[in-house]
């Protein structure tokens, strides 16, 4: 093939120039992640030095003005909101994909897929706004105060559902058709085929979708900031307001100085760590394409 690394046969000096130019752009593009980590670490360093990692978990509370930097309530907030949303969005998303592929008439299936794609494109601030003006008053009427973990879970569910559904749809579409024909020849009915043949065969794609959705849920900021109430506390029930790591950064960055600012960068590092772990997991899963 022509795409070999160092084509020494090329007589053209422009080619060598071009190659170095392209390498330059790729080096810049590739090093942005390193730059991000570097700057997060640099700005987090004062906090890591003066406060130390342990105090982010053992301090009595999060009161940066009084030099208390306990991040655990925010970690709980992120954790509960993410787990809740993933638990609801996973079945809904996968069933949506199953609907598109196997249950809906072709025209309806196409229309439904279009709708999910549109849903995927709606900005988070619009979801947040809708949650704030429609969902929060609704929840408030059932069980005050309204801005709550539940509202956050519902909004996050709507937001990550398209990711899970579209990934699942793509992986269902790539199942070898002879699997389905074999199942049909055996006389398996529809759901039995889906449960016994389709799901095992599409396992890795389904998992990747869920992991990408989880990543999106962890990183989501604006929508969750607008509907969750942002009280720093470990939630006792679904109706308690919570504050997530991301919302904490968005809320306090505007006026944070010194150690406080550095502490926010530490929470940014936490987020990066979680995302890197998820990307690694998704990579592992998508590489071992096991068809059952």
């Amino acid at each position: 093939m022509t795409s070999s690394d160092n084509n020494i046969l090329s007589r053209w000096p422009t080619d060598r120039l071009l190659l170095w130019l392209l390498r330059g752009t790729a080096a810049i593009a590739g090093s942005i992640v390193l730059l991000i980590v570097l700057f997060l670490v640099l700005d987090a360093l004062p906090a890591l030095q003066h406060i130390g990692i342990a105090r982010f978990f053992t301090d009595p509370s999060w009161h940066p003005a009084e030099h208390f930097y306990n991040l655990t309530p925010m970690l709980w907030g992120t954790l509960f909101a993410t787990i809740g949303a993933v638990l609801v969005a996973t079945p809904l998303g996968i069933l949506s994909a199953v609907f598109c592929q196997y249950y809906a008439p072709p025209a309806l299936g196409r229309l439904y897929r279009k709708l999910i794609e549109l849903l995927a494109g709606i900005p988070s601030v619009v979801y947040g706004f809708w949650g704030l003006v429609v969902l929060v008053p609704l929840i408030g009427a059932i069980h005050p105060p309204g801005p709550s973990l539940l509202a956050g879970i519902v909004i996050l569910t709507i937001m990550i559902l398209p990711t899970i559904a579209l990934m699942a749809d793509a992986s269902l579409a790539s199942i070898p058709p002879q699997y389905l024909r074999g199942a049909a020849a055996l006389g398996l009915p529809r759901w039995a085929t889906i449960r016994g043949v389709v799901f095992p065969a599409a396992k890795s794609g389904l998992f990747t979708g869920v992991i990408l959705g989880t990543g999106r849920a962890i990183g989501e900021t604006m929508a969750i900031l607008m509907v969750c109430g942002n009280v720093v506390q470990a939630p006792q029930s679904l109706f308690d307001p919570v504050r997530t790591l991301t919302a904490n950064i968005a809320l306090e960055m505007a006026y944070a100085l010194g150690n406080h600012r550095a502490a926010l960068f530490v929470s940014g590092l936490f987020l990066m760590g979680m995302i890197a772990a998820l990307v690694g997991a998704a990579d592992r899963i998508s590489r071992e394409k096991i068809y059952a």
Partner: peptide, 16 residues
């Protein structure tokens, strides 16, 4: 590195 970049939360881009 681009894979990781595509997963970075937007608020972290904001911090950076």
């Amino acid at each position: 590195s681009l894979d990781v970049l595509s997963g970075v939360p937007s608020i972290v881009f904001g911090l950076f």
